[in-house]
Design a protein around this nucleic acid. Structure first.
Lengths: 335, 335
DNA sequence: ACGCTTTCTGAAAGCGTTTTCAGATGAACC
DNA sequence: GGTTCATCTGAAAACGCTTTCAGAAAGCGT
């Protein structure tokens, strides 16, 4: 009788199936057993009416959004799609929606467009969220998982990241084992955790081979080519003696390549170069770059797994380190 | 008096400010003027209580989700981050949320986790949504904008894409003007619109120079290196005479490079190679790739603009073509 | 002073679900 | 056959907003 042009609601279904809306809700959610024959009638009615329950109404009534939020500060070139892919896939498998928020221009979020009101939990990539906001959410026990970032002191928030230290150590060990002794290291951005761990791996590998750490071989950078290019120029001009460069990451190694070529130093004959990340272009530059492959997509999936566990009140690991892998190509002088 | 641990609602604010909830709602939304002094009291109350309106409740009452959905089928390497960045930025500037959905493994969506119930509008990238679903949404007048895909016949849905044809023509013109006559063209996936337009550009450029189209110079592919590699191998083995390759896109040009190197044909001396997209690695491979730069981020922003216009009931253009730009590097033999 | 606007305000009715609560029904037991 | 239990069911009360509607207050012209 009613030709409301608006799409059907739960009570339309109830009427159509001759049951109460409570019953429809129950077969919808499977919360409580419903007499088989009625359940069937309800399912038929839902199909016939093409009923789609409104998420807003469900959320309001149940206080669950069925959505999780992803916060990141920058869509960093080759890195990001893999992460997003892993997150997206794992999340939709579990029937959750994904709300995406970026804090542009490296400036952390000011207002709060994503949070408790919006989502059931948050996936936070590196330093995209202010410490205070993280603390606030932590205090109200809001489910969160951090990626590539250790939580502020005293907060027990699960972290997923990759074996930066081991990766760096593998790289440096490899260089040393092939006779390189004076290895330049280009740091990442100030306070960047990945960078700190990589430096630690660098130092440990040196120590393991009784090579003393030399401050003049280390330079700060930002995991980008431009800074790396200038850093290398300076090191060369300063007449620093070196036979290898651990560029910090793959992007930086492009800058390193450029500086070395301009200075007419041959890669890998004069100088071996290694990166970190194994981004797409690493195999296409010449010479192809020896680097570390990090399972980024898997980081995304794992982060989702942990968050879902948190949502289900299960026990979670406070730290998951994904293994990295040495990818030997030509820039290190072997392979 | 009430120490409900749950976060404050609009009626808490109303009580705190000594007004009705209707008034609070009005200052929240600015729908109707409110006496200045009361408005101020309300604002103070909101700040003091740290009131955050629940989106679910708003959506339920107003029937607007304040969210738009992005549907795509694949996170295609270098392409996607730029698109996402543009969309994300423009959308959040306008105060909308972004719900992200990918139809994995090239299989269009089956159930419908994203749609009218979820969002106020949809951004659809290439063929990520089934024709029937698009038709259904179109029929109920649901706001949509397509990116890099023409709508099914008879549906007037705005499209944003790039000047594929012009770009391809620029590339081929450039090759011809530098003396190349036998130009191989590697197609993209069957039915892919970008590919079709590029082929048209290719043909028009040939025609403009009175070079007749030669079927043996054209091969089908998938915009990927593997297929491109095999296609090139075959062309070489077949003894086809050619002095240039328009690889279809940058990814494919990697495969072309490989096949040519194996066949000991020099780039660009023996064979000029050009790609399309100007992905990150294009400048780093050797020789650096001449290609077409497409303003992908701008496509994302424009798509959002059009969608918002649609939501506001404004007039929209049914087709926006973003200009492409020729980027000359070394693979074409000049520059 | 008197009506007539105009401007602002609060009560209350939704919005479409979930969830609680009390019953109804039938089975099982003694 | 009467209790007691276990199942299933519907009425109704939330959930936290927006929006309608009618009315109060204030301004204005005469």
């Amino acid at each position: 009788m009613n030709h409301k042009s608006t799409s059907p609601t739960i009570s339309d279904v109830a009427a159509h199936a001759g049951v109460s809306i409570a019953t429809v809700s129950r077969v919808l959610n499977g919360t409580v057993p419903v007499q088989a024959e009625k359940a069937e009638r309800v399912r038929e009615a839902m199909a016939e009416l093409r009923f789609i329950p409104r998420p807003a109404a469900r959320t309001l009534a149940s206080r669950k959004t069925n959505t999780i939020g992803l916060v990141f500060s920058e869509i960093r070139g080759a890195f990001f799609p893999h992460l997003l892919k892993g997150i997206e896939a794992q999340l939709h498998e579990a029937g959750y929606e994904l709300l995406v928020y970026s804090t542009h221009s490296d400036r952390p979020i000011k207002r709060k467009p994503i949070g408790e009101h919006n989502t059931d939990g948050l996936l936070v990539f590196t330093t995209s969220l202010e410490k205070e906001e993280i603390a606030r959410l932590y205090k109200i026990n809001f489910p969160m998982v951090l990626m590539h970032e250790t939580p502020p002191a005293g907060m027990d928030i699960p972290v997923i990241t990759v074996e930066n230290k081991d990766g760096a150590a593998m790289l440096v060990n490899h260089l040393i084992e092939h006779g390189r002794r004076r290895i330049v290291f280009l740091r990442g951005p100030e306070g960047h955790e990945d960078s700190q761990w990589r430096e630690r791996g660098y130092r440990e590998a040196l120590a393991a081979h009784n090579i003393s750490f030399d401050e003049t071989l280390v330079s700060s950078g930002k995991f980008d080519q431009e800074t790396a290019y200038h850093s290398m120029q300076k090191i060369i001009q300063d007449g620093v003696d070196f036979d290898a460069v651990f560029a910090g990451d793959d992007d930086a190694s492009i800058g390193v390549y450029r500086a070395l070529k301009e200075a007419r130093r041959l890669i890998p004959d004069d100088v071996a170069v290694v990166g970190f990340d194994d981004v797409e272009f690493a195999r296409y530059i010449s010479p192809p770059l020896t680097t570390i492959r990090a399972p980024i997509e898997e980081v995304g999936r794992e982060a989702v797994r942990q968050l879902l566990a948190l949502l289900n009140g299960e026990q979670v690991q406070s730290l998951v380190l994904k293994r990295t892998e040495l990818v030997i190509r030509q820039s290190c002088g072997c392979g």
